[in-house]
């Protein structure tokens, strides 16, 4: 029994050679990013030991571990989780940071975005055409839309959108929007994907989600009658959030950690999102084209991106969502 445990625990990791090993806490799913780590090891010879989990729980874990954290790199699903542990991250070199636009990284240089996802309105093609839907997210709290709309209030992506909305139109207007949604019968879901599934099933007709869930659902259900509506550039409803990475200040292998972040921002690392990954996320390094059928990133991003505030504003956002009664 003990032997079985030892075998199960050590199998993958003991082949790594002593100090060159790199420990990554990945809040991104294994199915999506595991090939990236293989490519990195092939290119650099550095062995990577990856711990997978939810971004938020990994952030809580890093915070609780304190100086004892075994992690070298935190690879997060969203900017909010990176922002919440930014006091445990050390600044990245300018050469690394400058590969992406300033709006996709931490102003203090402690984390950098590696790929982008856009908030969209997913809609059932049996109920709507893209051009008859509003370009302004605030319009979707009207009764005729809200009653057929799905949201995921406990989901980090939705909360990032609400933070962007608060910062753009103010707390009072944002709260009214949420209260109107609630009053007009919005349906709540546990995550983005179930919303897109529910649209395909006809349970609802609209959903505030990230752009790539459409591709994921169509992979299992190619005939699902769902499409994405991209809202106006700079509208909080088309917020471009990022997945990103940071190096821990307590990292034992800082050199390898920086190399990994550089690799994620290399041409190879960036093309991965456009050509290989099924999620169709946006590459963030200028010059690397996104997957076919996606509007260019420049047509979606407004003049300012509030990503660095997502971590610190999250608590107030959650309080607003809870107060309106959307999480019950």
């Amino acid at each position: 029994m003990v032997a079985a445990l030892a075998a199960a625990g050590c199998g993958d990791s003991d082949s790594a050679s002593g100090d060159a090993k790199l420990v990554v806490y990945s809040g991104r799913e294994e199915e999506i990013v595991a090939p990236l780590f293989t490519k990195f090891t092939d290119a650099t010879g550095i062995q990577v030991e990856v711990r997978y989990g939810k971004s938020a729980e990994m952030a809580a874990q890093i915070a609780e571990e304190g100086d004892g954290s075994p992690a070298d790199v935190f690879f997060s699903q969203d900017a909010g989780a990176l922002g919440s542990v930014s006091d445990r991250l050390s600044p990245l070199p300018d050469a690394t940071l400058n590969r992406v636009k300033a709006s996709f990284r931490d102003p203090d240089g402690r984390w950098v975005g590696t790929s982008g996802r856009v908030r969209v309105v997913a809609f059932g093609t049996k109920a709507y055409r893209a051009d008859e839907l509003p370009d302004d997210v605030l319009a979707y709290s009207q009764p005729k839309y809200a009653a057929r709309l799905g949201i995921a209030p406990t989901n980090a992506s939705f909360q990032a959108f609400v933070t962007a909305l608060r910062l753009k139109v103010g707390d009072d207007r944002a709260k009214k929007f949420l209260a109107d949604l609630k009053a007009n019968g919005v349906k709540t879901f546990e995550g983005n994907r179930p919303i897109v599934e529910a649209i395909a099933d006809g349970e609802v007709d609209l959903g505030l989600v990230n752009h790539y869930y459409l591709a994921l659902v169509k992979k299992e259900r190619p005939d699902a009658a769902v499409e994405n509506k991209f809202l106006a550039a700079g509208d909080p409803g088309s917020l471009v959030n990022v997945a990103g990475a940071g190096v821990l200040s307590t990292a034992k292998n800082t050199d390898g950690a920086t190399k990994l972040v550089d690799f994620l921002l290399s041409q190879d690392g960036q093309r991965f999102y456009a050509t290989e990954a099924e999620e169709n996320e946006y590459p963030l390094v200028p010059g690397v084209q996104p997957a076919k059928g996606l509007p260019p990133l420049d047509t979606l991003v407004g003049e300012s991106q509030p990503l660095s505030k997502l971590g610190s504003e999250e608590k107030a956002t959650l309080e607003m969502i809870t107060e309106v009664g959307l999480t019950s």
């Binding site: 938020a56 729980e57 809580a60 915070a63 609780e64 909010g80 980090a156 608590k315």
Partner: peptide
């Protein structure tokens, strides 16, 4: 569930 949501948002323990 509220405890989980709190950990997931704001990571305020």
């Amino acid at each position: 569930r509220a405890i989980f949501t709190r950990y997931e948002a704001g990571f305020d323990r």
